[in-house]
Design a protein around this nucleic acid. Structure first.
Lengths: 251, 251
DNA sequence: CGAACGTTTGAGATGACTCAAGCGTTGTGG
DNA sequence: CCACAACGCTTGAGTCATCTCAAACGTTCG
């Protein structure tokens, strides 16, 4: 069963969740240990604070250890669109390492713990280690694959489909991070946040959630998502987990 | 003026448009020459053919020399959502190099010419050249930045705004590739393609185009986009070019 | 106790969709 | 060489999903 298998793989490393449960690319214990030598400090961010402002020149990148973050773009009226959602284990802004600056902002949705990687330290790790470089590169491309799927979600799904897809995706990512058992997981965000993620108003989000609840697909109450039958929810959201490059499902 | 400045920079290299006009990261003539030693062949794809099927294991990547491609995800009913659009100079599926397989398909919208890069050759180039690796990595992240902006486009803009934004983006990318003078460019795709790019039906796309025409913002006829006043169109689409990481505008 | 916040419901407006059909151009086979 | 099919573009009419504006309720917190 999910959480049991997870427990076996748990280590004492800060980076234990980074690229966990991924096929093709996976990190050995030694690689993780080496990666951790590049951490300069661990920071706490409090809920509802902007961690990185758009356009800022970056000399460090953040690996999310605990909590939830989102990346956003604002429109001319200041209305915020979330363009990415992050769970523990995500290297949130590693793309700032080759790009030097971010074209968007990052906000903590809950209080969060972050491991800071100075880019100079990443340079040191990468020098002469093409394999590790490619794994870090891979992790930024996983992010891009998720972006593409969000484009699909917005272009092809209705409100209920979008929420169902987002819950399915988040379940899969949290499962890989040992934080979901495929039936229930913590997601301490508001309905308004969920709306900004799915491109819906908070009012419509509320109605969509009621419908999903009435159809027995999922509930979202007090920061907890409960899914009676995962495959039904995934079908409703047309969720196809392949883009997450996870290990073959063991169930 | 745009095209004049462009002519100065033109070279005889196949890769002349790759990362052209980008700040922070730019390739020297020597780097381009070295990059070209990794090309195994140049292929022609005919219009309306699928170049890469989703899920395929990849041992080469494609740099687009001429023509237009799109990447897509299909929904359960076979309805196609384009998740990326590519102009000459784009390294279309370089992400297959660290990822080994693609979670989506690639289709030629027009006939296209492609330079093929075997991954083994890229390994050879990258060995001991961390700078080049970071530049290739950067180019895949530019792609991700465009994805994020597409999410914004879908989440926050109405039909007319989406089309205006897409035209603004395409103009900027083609300008960087010396293929637009900021007033007119070739875009030989159908209204239905445009709809799939912007998440609209072809019928609604037609109406949106009429509106943009009537408002004097742009015309799209016989595969040509004409823009009387670029800044007006960009304003309508809330287009902010920063995510393309271009050189500061010289105008 | 009152303010702030998140959730829930109602009513009316609107943007985009579906279905239907006509028109012009291009290409092709009898 | 003509007829017809295929395709892309355009318009009309009716429907539906989602939005906006408005308001009420419960909880938390100062």
């Amino acid at each position: 069963m999910g959480l049991k298998a997870a427990a076996v793989e748990m280590t004492d490393l800060l980076t234990e969740r980074f690229l966990s449960d991924r096929r093709v690319v996976s990190l050995t214990y030694e690689e993780r240990s080496r990666l951790e030598t590049a951490i300069s400090e661990v920071k706490i961010a409090s809920a509802r604070t902007v961690i990185v402002k758009p356009g800022k020149r970056m000399e460090t990148s953040n690996l999310l250890l605990d909590g939830f973050l989102a990346r956003f773009l604002d429109d001319k009226n200041g209305l915020r669109q979330f363009v990415a959602f992050h769970v523990p284990g995500d290297f949130v802004d590693l793309h700032a390492y080759p790009m030097h600056m971010l074209d968007h902002g990052i906000v903590a949705l809950t209080s969060a713990r972050l491991a800071i990687f100075p880019h100079s330290e990443l340079d040191r790790l990468n020098r002469g280690d093409e394999e590790l470089t490619k794994k870090l590169w891979f992790s930024t491309l996983l992010d891009a694959a998720i972006h593409r799927t969000w484009v699909f979600r917005f272009g092809r799904l209705d409100g209920a489909g979008r929420v169902a897809h987002f819950f399915s995706e988040t379940n899969a990512r949290l499962h890989a991070a040992y934080l979901s058992d495929n039936h229930q997981f913590q997601l301490p965000i508001t309905q308004a946040d969920l709306g900004e993620i799915c491109g819906l108003t908070s009012i419509h989000t509320n109605r969509v959630l009621r419908r999903l609840r009435e159809e027995g697909l999922c509930t979202f109450r007090e920061g907890t998502v409960t899914i009676p039958e995962l495959s039904a929810l995934e079908r409703r959201g047309q969720f196809d987990r392949r883009y997450l490059y996870l290990n073959p499902d063991e169930q």
